[in-house]
Amino acid sequence: MRMTRMVAVAAVAALSLGIAACGGDDSDSGNDSSSGSKDFAAGSTMEKLNKAQKITIGTKFDQPGFGLKGLDGKPAGFDVEIGKLIADELGIADDKITWVETPSAVREEKIEKAEVDLVVATYTINDKRKERIDFAGPYYEAGQNILVKADDSSITGPDSFKAGDKKVCSVQGSTPATNIEKYLANKASQLVVFDVYQKCVDALTNGQVNAVTTDNVILLGFIARNEGKFKLAGENFTKEPYGIGLKKGDTAFRTFVNDTLDKIFKDGQWEKAWKDTAGKYVDETPTPPTINRY
């Protein structure tokens, strides 16, 4: 039983790669070009989505560079581009993608209830979350850093909070908020959490807190939007691999997404997506991470 399933998975993977190769010629002329019917293993999620010609993807709507909903009502960013590339690989046109907002707190819930097919939402892979859902990827490796006012030299890294006199802000229920707790002398008097990072940045501007902490890419977005007001204090002090969340146990689909990521890492689409979105805030282009096929 186990063997046949693995063979099926391998077959699906090979098939999808083969198809991808066929459609690869015209991929530069626009993302919609490869939409249409494709052959996937019968009964697989890929076949179901391809037949339906639509996919629902969860992303953030308030994350500059990754998923930010603009005035035109469409989200844009690196996560959104990754979502489009996967949909493309499934033979689904960009305009057939339904984007759903998935803030940090509801991501597992939305996947479990099958309200979304995929979640690409600055979603850090960790074991606790793997108990409820599965992750493909990572497709990017971020790291936690600290944002301070440009003229502040008293904070040099997370250890600066150990003395207990520096206050830090992060977002409710996020991994960075949990990570920074280790470095705090007194959580009650040093940590503030809000629902969105903009409020943290306001608190930093007004002086209620001395620092904002979260993944570097998010902080870079704020530095870029407030020229000269803020800077990063020190190096990244964690590794946050961003993965793509999908329904637990759907191994064939996970393998398919992993293969798609491998493909876009190699053919330059990943790099292009990065440079068009979040990469605008950073000088160097990162190297694609290694996919973790657990």
Partner: peptide
């Protein structure tokens, strides 16, 4: 409410 938020999202 903050504690609940923390339990559901950070700790899953």
């Amino acid at each position: 409410s903050n504690g609940a938020q923390n339990l559901t999202s950070a700790l899953g």
